[in-house]
Amino acid sequence: MARVLVWYGELATARSLVWRGVLLVLPGLLWLMAFLVLPGLVLIPLSFAERGPYGEVIWTFTWENYRRLLGFGVLGFSLDNLLALVRTVWVALVTTLLAAVLAYPIAFFIRAQHPRRRYLVLSLVLIPFWTNIVIRTYAWQLLLAPEMPFARILAALGLVEPGMALFPSSLAVYLGMLSAFLPFMVLPLYSSVERMDESLLEAVRDLYGGPVRVFLHGILPQTLPGLTVGVILTFIPAMGMFVVPDLLGGAKHLLVGNLIQQTFYTMRDWPYGAALSLVLILLTLVALRLYRRYGKEVELA
C-alpha cells in the first residue's frame, strides 16, 4: 500500500506528487531540450568539422579548431586567442566582484527605506532594462566623449590629455559591464538582505567583532543564497558579453564573445566558432564550480 502523506494540507502519495512534478516541468523541459540542449550538443561534432571554401561545413574529424584556439594558427603561433580567453575570465570576474561590492550598499539602502517606498526604489533599479543594452552602451560613448564633464574633469586633473575621449579603454568596458549587470546582482541580493536577521549582526558586535567580522559572520552567511544567484546571473552573461567590449573596448579589449561573433558572422567559420563556444561554456562551468566550492566553505567553515 502506498503511504499517504499530507502535502500543504492535501492528501497525496509520493507517486502522485512525482507525476504531478513531471507534468509541471514537462513544457519547460521540452522547450529547453529543443532550443538549448540539442543545438548545444550539435556544437560538439561541429567543433571537430572543417570550414569549406564558401563557409559551408565539411563534416570530418579534425583537432584543427582546437589547435588553432591554443595559438597554432595558419599564420604561425599567436597567443591572441588564449589571451582573449584569459581576458574574458578576468573581466567577468572583476565585473562580478565589483557588482557584488556595489550591490551590498544598494541592497541595504533599499532595506532601510520605508516598506512602501522599497518597491519604488527596486523598480528604479530595473529602469535601465526599459532600454536595449546596445543603446545604453552607445549612451556611455556619449557620456565618455571629450566634451562631456567626465573627460573634462579628468583632463583638468591632468589624468588624460585634453580633447581625448575616455573610450576605448578598460575603464569604459568595466563601466559598461557594471551598468549592464548591476541590477542582476542587486535584485537577488536584496531578496536575501531583506530577510536578514539583524540580531546576528548585533551578536557579532556584542562579541567584540568589528566591521569585518560583522560582514563575514553576520551578513555574508545570511546573504550567501542571494549573492550566489547574483554571481551566477552576472558571471555567466559577463563571460559571453560582446556588445560592451565592441563599443567601448576596441581591439585591445576583445573578449571571447567578440571572437565568437566575428567567427560566425564575419569569417563564417562555424566549426571554429563552435570550438570557441564550447571552451567558453566549459570555462564558465569550471569557474562556477570553483565558486560553489569556495561558497560552501564560507557557509560551513
Binding site: D197, S199, L200, E202, A203, V204, R205, D206, L207, Y208, G209, G210, H217, P221, V298, E299, L300, A301
Partner: peptide, 21 residues
C-alpha cells in the same frame, strides 16, 4: 561606547547563534 567595546554580553531572545559555526 559601541557594543563591541563594552564589557557586557547579551543572550538574545532568539539566541542569535551563528548558523554557519
Amino acid at each position: 561606547l559601541p557594543a563591541h567595546r563594552r564589557p557586557v554580553n547579551t543572550v538574545f531572545q532568539n539566541y542569535a547563534l551563528f548558523p554557519h559555526l
